[in-house]
Measured scan of single mutants.
Amino acid sequence: DWEDIVRFLRKLFELGEEVVIGDWHNHHREEIKRLIEWLEKHF
C-alpha cells in the first residue's frame, strides 16, 4: 500500500530531522524529500 510507504518515509524523514542519521541522512535527505513529494503527487 503506497500510503503506508509514504507514511513510513515521512516518519523516517521526520525522525531524521531530530536525530541526524550521520552522513547517510544528510546525503539522502533531499532525495527522500523529493521522493515523498513525488509520491504525494501521484498517489
Score class of each variant (00 low, 15 high):
28 H>W: 15
41 K>I: 09
34 R>S: 10
1 D>N: 09
37 E>N: 03
15 L>T: 04
14 E>L: 05
17 E>L: 15
7 R>K: 12
11 K>Y: 15
40 E>N: 12
29 R>V: 09
38 W>K: 07
1 D>L: 14
21 I>C: 11
26 N>V: 04
9 L>P: 00
8 F>H: 07
42 H>K: 13
16 G>T: 12
39 L>K: 00
37 E>A: 07
7 R>N: 11
11 K>W: 15
3 E>S: 13
20 V>W: 10
2 W>E: 01
21 I>L: 12
36 I>A: 03
20 V>S: 06
23 D>W: 11
2 W>Y: 03
12 L>H: 00
4 D>R: 14
8 F>Y: 07
25 H>M: 15
24 W>M: 09
16 G>E: 07
19 V>E: 04
19 V>Y: 03
17 E>N: 13
43 F>C: 13
18 E>G: 08
39 L>A: 04
36 I>V: 09
21 I>N: 12
8 F>K: 08
29 R>I: 12
34 R>N: 04
14 E>N: 05
12 L>M: 05
4 D>N: 11
13 F>I: 08
39 L>D: 00
10 R>K: 14
31 E>R: 11
2 W>P: 01
18 E>W: 13
35 L>Y: 02
5 I>V: 07
6 V>A: 04
3 E>L: 12
13 F>E: 01
5 I>Y: 04
2 W>V: 01
7 R>A: 07
39 L>G: 01
19 V>I: 12
22 G>D: 07
38 W>N: 02
33 K>I: 13
4 D>W: 15
41 K>F: 06
30 E>S: 05
23 D>M: 04
10 R>L: 13
25 H>L: 15
37 E>M: 10
13 F>A: 03
20 V>Q: 07
13 F>V: 04
35 L>A: 05
11 K>F: 15
41 K>P: 02
40 E>W: 15
2 W>C: 10
28 H>F: 15
12 L>E: 00
39 L>N: 00
41 K>H: 12
15 L>F: 13
19 V>K: 04
7 R>H: 06
2 W>F: 08
16 G>P: 03
29 R>G: 07
23 D>Q: 04
23 D>I: 12
9 L>T: 00
2 W>T: 01
